[in-house]
Design a protein around this nucleic acid. Structure first.
Lengths: 164, 164
DNA sequence: CTTGACTCTGTATTCGACTACAGGGTTTAC
DNA sequence: GTAAACCCTGTAGTCGAATACAGAGTCAAG
């Protein structure tokens, strides 16, 4: 354990990281880190005598893996299973392979969809720029959908929560 | 009011649709339709004397537009703005164009990311099948994260959402 | 010794996009 | 004429992935 004096070995290569540091380096946010731990994605780190989490730098790689997997469309739950499975010894477990394979299929499917609509959207935008008119799927459809009078936009955009 | 007798013109081309029918044809679900209406994506339809929603078939196109836009990654809120904007007269509004253009950029970004990781994932899976070992990013990282050191992390990737 | 930055646990809240349900009215088929 | 199938409003719940907050302990600097 962390015998009170090992703190002073604060060289940058081997230092145990406190949660704030991990958050800073991984870009993941303290609360999220604790949440990951609760959810079984991280396993519990050592603690200092006072109860502070004390991470080994390896956690950063793990977090990186998690982020990558997320981008690929894995849910935290699936990621958890992959990690747990690996850790449990039976490395290339069938179940995990299934997940990966399925996700791959879904991914391809989604990629195809996205490429298609990207083309449509791009085309519409181009024409829009040219002619000042929206065309094709993007707005032909809006136009097509006439709204039976009434007050259209109803109320103000009170709850307009734009982010990102 | 719909003059009690015009209901009987139930020819298939002009019939006003009740919500269940719209749900069936659009594949969108009654509750979701009402939710869209509440959210300002649909505007209120006429009602029969008894208060039932009575949709014009054009709503189907609108719903189709909404679905497409969603697949492209637009939020309901953005979709709403696009529609409202169009309806408000100033057709090819700058704001909407901005949304579309930005979304397009994001989409391309995301496509690139996805293709990259798809390659990695595919490769890992192939090797896995071959050698029974997970390699590369997919599991090297899991293995690495046993609890040993390493280094950095670049900036976070944009928040991407998986849906479906 | 005190301040301020940091951390702890535990519970609650957010957000988007729905979905479910309670407690009614209406239409339609037999 | 009655039961099933539909529709209404309004409110509440779900799900994934976090965030936020309350109330308390800990640590390094001045």
């Amino acid at each position: 354990m962390a015998l009170r004096s090992n703190q002073q070995v604060t060289a940058e290569s081997r230092s145990p990281l406190k949660i704030g540091e991990v958050a800073k380096r991984s870009g993941i946010g303290i609360e999220a880190l604790r949440f990951y731990e609760r959810s079984g994605l991280l396993g519990q780190p050592c603690r200092t005598q006072s109860g502070y989490r004390s991470y080994d730098a390896a956690v950063l790689q793990r977090l990186d893996f998690i982020k990558r997997a997320q981008v690929l469309g894995f849910s935290l739950d699936e990621i958890k299973r992959i990690i747990a499975d690996k850790q449990a010894g039976h490395s290339p477990c069938l179940e995990v392979r299934e997940i990966v394979r399925n996700r791959l299929e879904e991914l391809d499917e989604r990629l195809k969809e996205m490429r298609l609509y990207r083309r449509e959207l791009g085309a519409a935008l181009a024409q829009w720029d040219e002619t000042g008119e929206l065309a094709g799927h993007v707005c032909g459809l809006i136009e097509g959908a006439q709204i039976e009078h009434s007050n259209p936009t109803s109320r103000g955009l009170s709850k307009n929560k734009r982010r990102k």
